[in-house]
Design a protein around this nucleic acid. Structure first.
Lengths: 222, 222
DNA sequence: CATCTTCTCAGTAGTTCTACCGAGAAGTAC
DNA sequence: GTACTTCTCGGTAGAACTACTGAGAAGATG
């Protein structure tokens, strides 16, 4: 972790920013962008969530610009730590993955914004200014998630389900017992049971009630 | 409705703002605030939603800063109109009521932000810049609503469930088997079964998978 | 051709849930 | 007090699902 010397222009009008990302290249890029704006000052850098929390407590930045995925402690856990101890520090989550699904969790973790890697310099600065002034900022791509819509970008299947398994999952989530599913798909009940067990295995051994949630997350319902 | 003459400083870098509020005093205040920022230009004013839509189509502003409550057509309806015809115009909702309850509806109506009347000039400018640059901006007061907090308007229970039944339903939806639910609530498995059967009776004989949906609809989860 | 995955099906045993039955204790309403 | 609801608990039976096992057929991949 790194502590930067105060800039000679430091004043109360400046927004003090702490960077946290495990990729030096990304940090360099962000710093280069922010250096162009005199009102923004990068006061330190961290390479994991734990360091970010410690540095935030020490430096008390206005904004903590932090990647979600970092070693030791990820951005969400770090955001929760920050909220518990210093809720006045605005956490702005920078996701290198274009995954709006995180948004809810991010806000629940106490973050004040969520921006994507493909953001422009101008928008990144706007986002930092936004959270620094007390608001919430979200990249345009996360709109559907904000309104609770099923993103219609069906979410790439994180479980590696097969087509048949998806069919079975859909039917189960609709509330059909195995016997009906078997009838509808024209296969044996035992086969449906096999698929069902494989599903539970793949998605993490959740039961029937929770399979509904998985189906919903995958956009299989509606 | 009013159309302002182009400022002599107009350029592509400027953000063109259309104001919509039925109170002249509010419009004057906003205009006074925005005039201090050379990058922002108020290109017109409307006093109701219908005029706002018409003016927006004519002037094609970057941002439409609009009150929710207006005569003839309110801000939400106007926002929906705008989204249908010119989704590139960022609608920023200004609520004179401190009511974060609107937030979801506001975003669903196509708005890109929601700010409250007691906002500072600096934050208002930040908000306008945020939505103009393609992001979403929300005043800090709306945080609880953003995270999907149950906003204390828990969706009137259409099934007439009792408190205990809601508890059981919540646990079931989380995927807990009856035995665990019984342990957690300190009651017999048979009692949980009774509640479960009563639940199925009340909500329309849905099975475990579908009970998740009911619990979710009632806002019991999250 | 050998290998892998997917989809298919079955045996066996155990657990969990469903569907009825009935009933006592506690609190509220009239 | 009587009536009502809510919450509690039990018996019994059957249906449904879980948890292992193994395995054949079809298709893609190398």
């Amino acid at each position: 972790m790194t502590v930067h010397s105060p800039s000679p222009h430091a004043s109360s009008k400046h927004t003090r920013v702490l960077l946290a990302d495990d990729h030096e290249l990304v940090r360099d890029g962000i710093r280069a962008r922010l250096q162009k704006v005199p009102e923004l000052e990068v006061v330190g850098e961290a390479t994991n969530g734990r360091d970010a929390v410690n540095l935030a407590l020490e430096l008390r930045p206005d904004v903590l610009l932090m990647d979600v995925s970092m070693p030791v402690m990820n951005g969400l856990e770090a955001a929760m730590e920050i909220r518990k101890t210093r809720p006045d520090i605005a956490v702005l989550i920078l996701s290198v993955y274009d995954n709006p699904e995180y948004v809810r969790g991010v806000v629940q973790a106490g973050a004040r914004g969520y921006i994507l890697k493909d953001i422009s310099a101008a928008e990144m600065i706007t986002a930092i200014t936004s959270v620094a002034s007390g608001g919430y900022y979200f990249s345009s791509a996360v709109g559907p998630t904000l309104v609770g819509a099923n993103t219609s970008a069906p979410v790439e299947d994180p479980y590696g389900l097969t087509d048949r398994e998806r069919q079975v999952l859909t039917a189960i989530a609709r509330g059909q017992p195995n016997k009906e599913v078997a009838k509808d798909l024209g296969i044996s009940v035992r086969t449906v049971e096999s698929h069902r067990l494989n599903l539970r295995e793949k998605v993490g051994n959740k039961n029937a009630a929770q399979l509904y949630k998985v189906a919903q997350d995958l956009g299989l319902l509606d």
